[in-house]
């Protein structure tokens, strides 16, 4: 521990940091050695991923859609996928490695994660079918929505205009109900179950 501190805790060993520090950043920092191509990725996908995410990343049931949805972000029902929405490839590698497959996290080897990432890029028309992903080719990939994000601008866009003394009397001429939750009727029933 630091001189002048409380002297609590102990120095982390290199092997301990290596075991837990698995995060990848947009510039590729943290990527392990390894590589994988699209067709190897398809095999890993079919075995580990397709049962929830569909053979082509189209998703089964309510599980997340991985591919498609291009040019839908400004539509009424946007489809946000790796190809249509995600800004960085590093996030794909990092997230698959840390949290997928759902229920069997951190079970994939670096080569498998590279291959899966390559297959997801292929499903999203970002690369050709002969593409091989590795630490060396990682930064060559351009994500379609890389420029789609900007830092929180509420301070300029909202806060100033909503810091005003509000109306207290005669604020409206008329009031009408325009929408009712009861019409939609999607609220769970069965509060009585808990009582009886």
């Amino acid at each position: 521990s630091r001189e002048g501190g409380f002297g609590l805790g102990r120095r982390a060993l290199e092997a301990e940091v290596a075991a837990w520090d698995i995060d990848i950043r947009p510039d590729g920092t943290g990527l392990p050695e390894g590589s994988g191509d699209v067709w190897t990725g398809e095999e890993v996908w079919v075995e580990n991923c397709a049962m929830c995410h569909g053979d082509f990343g189209e998703a089964v049931g309510r599980w997340p859609v991985i591919a498609g949805g291009w040019d839908t972000l400004d539509r009424k029902d946007p489809v946000k996928t790796v190809g249509s929405y995600w800004p960085y490839l590093s996030t794909v590698y990092d997230y698959i490695h840390r949290a997928m497959p759902f229920g069997n996290a951190q079970s994939l080897e670096p080569d498998q994660v590279y291959a899966l990432t390559a297959y997801i890029l292929y499903l999203n028309n970002v690369v050709e079918d002969d593409f091989e992903l590795s630490r060396d080719t990682f930064l060559d990939v351009e994500m379609p929505n890389a420029d789609g994000f900007f830092p929180d601008d509420r301070a300029e866009a909202e806060l100033a205009q909503w810091r005003t003394e509000p109306c207290m009397e005669n604020c409206k001429d008329a009031v009408e109900i325009t929408m009712r939750a009861r019409v939609l009727d999607v609220t769970p029933e069965g509060e009585a179950d808990a009582v009886e």
């Binding site: 990848i24 950043r25 929405y85 601008d153």
Partner: peptide
């Protein structure tokens, strides 16, 4: 630098109607 992980890119980013999205909407 920030890590730009799944929970701050795919999720917890706020899509506006022009198709662009706010990120880091923390407060």
């Amino acid at each position: 630098q920030p890590w730009e992980h799944r929970e701050e890119t795919s999720k917890y980013t706020d899509l506006l109607d022009n198709g662009r999205a706010r990120k880091w909407t923390w407060e």
